[in-house]
Design a protein around this nucleic acid. Structure first.
Lengths: 265, 265
DNA sequence: AACTGTATGTCGATC
DNA sequence: GATCGACGTACAGTT
């Protein structure tokens, strides 16, 4: 079976074939054929390999994978993923901008991916390559995820009363040298109010972030400064901190978020 | 070409074929064949689909992908990935434990993946399916990445003089209700020393984390407490904080880390 | 199941 | 290029 498949996909004149088709698949290609196809098409196709392979990663950390069947994905931007049977995450990977080198060493297909800054190397040896697929993919322009923190801040800017009646907006993304404050306001009593927004459940870090901003504004303005944390939820320990520091928590009910998400698009 | 390939892969008795082979590939399968294969084998194979597809995600946030060629990966643990031509990250995904439903609606292959807690749904419509691959993959047991923070702490425990001569270990992973302190020590002058370890470059958060621990230990013990941040590097603003709070920074040169990584395995 | 902290995090925005 | 914070973060370890 494999021979026939290989034959079918390789016997045609490559250039034309590639230009009109948006994918090529080979079953049990020779290392040489695979290497040649990879080198010729890696800048235009996403390449999927399935084979028995060893892999080694070294850079910020280091790890090794012994010989086993795995899936390798090579993208035109240099991203490289090695996947196993489980997890959303690859076991070993290289982010975009890595450079790929494919060659045949002693009859074995070897892929090497090198990245700089930080310098990191992934080396893959594939003694048995069972499948090679080249697929033409695109990139969705203007891809937008709705419901991010930015969307919530947008909403709050237009509905400040939702946080607390009488708030007046001073600035959005107010830059300080301790970070950027999501919303800086003034309350009905003339206090400065720092608002920190979190999309999901706020943890201890969110409260400490808020504290940092509040302290900074107190120090730099000398005014009385309040802190308000706005989120869908808050963890118990984060809530302890919150009360300790005298801050206020405003929950965004999921109902509001869903409504918010359905109005946007 | 496609017809012949499909034929080659489908005409054989499925059961035997599957049991002995570790992969099956089909070019331009019918939606019905694809659906049937997916439903029968999704718990044992990693499935790769290439086709022109629309996708919709809704849950913690929400997003849509218009019709375009993309790669879909389905894993036996329920993980689902939709990849485009670039990035290490999938555009849309589902983490493990999601449940997959595959069906044919009006002649179109439709995949639906549902996850609970949080409730999230990914729906994929594939009007044109060009390729379907089923690959048998494993999971590397005892997979270990070397050079994690834990490894560094291990090293420091055995080489406390590296941080500062005369340090004596009191506790590792000392649990407080503000978090767990990497290393709690006593210096040669009898001061309590809180050591926070970061693997890479320490940012402002690391310093604030350290501050939290130091303040907590001061409050609960009444003793004089020092703070030391150990990391490969520190960002400029983090260093400002560090000096402001009177903490100390100890750099782990990369040379030491590499040596550390080579001794472990 | 909820919570906490790490990650070879990745990614985008800003300086 | 360095820095910083968000992410549908994912994931592992603990309570």
């Amino acid at each position: 079976m494999s021979d026939i498949l290989s034959y079918l996909t390789t016997e045609q004149p490559k250039q034309e074939h590639v230009q009109q088709d948006n994918f090529i698949v080979l079953v049990e290609p020779s290392p040489e054929d695979a290497c040649s196809l990879i080198n010729r098409h890696r800048s235009r196709f996403v390449i999927v390999l399935y084979g028995n392979l060893r892999a080694h990663y070294e850079g910020r950390a280091k790890s090794d994978l012994e010989l086993a069947p795995r899936l390798v994905i090579l993208k035109p931007d240099g991203a490289l993923l090695i996947h196993e049977a489980t997890k959303r995450e690859p076991v070993i990977w290289q982010p975009p901008k890595a450079t790929l080198y494919a060659q045949v060493d002693n009859g074995i297909l070897v892929l090497k991916s090198v990245r700089t800054n930080p310098y990191e190397v992934v080396k893959i040896e594939i003694p048995s390559l069972y499948f090679l697929g080249l697929f033409k993919l695109g990139v969705t322009e203007n891809y937008k995820v709705i419901g991010s923190e930015k969307d919530i801040v947008d909403f709050l800017v237009k509905n400040l009363d939702f946080v607390e009646p009488g708030l007046k907006l001073i600035s959005r993304e107010f830059e300080t040298n301790v970070g950027s404050i999501d919303l800086l306001c003034e309350d009905k009593d003339g206090n400065l109010v720092v608002i920190e927004v979190k999309r999901g459940q706020a943890g201890p870090e969110a409260v400490h972030q808020l504290k940092r901003y509040v302290e900074h504004m107190q120090k730099t303005t000398g005014r009385n400064v309040r802190g308000i944390l706005v989120a869908q939820d808050i963890s118990s320990s984060a809530f302890r901190y919150l009360r300790e520091y005298g801050f206020k928590f405003v929950r965004i009910p999921q109902k509001v978020l869903i409504g918010l998400m359905s109005t946007l698009k």
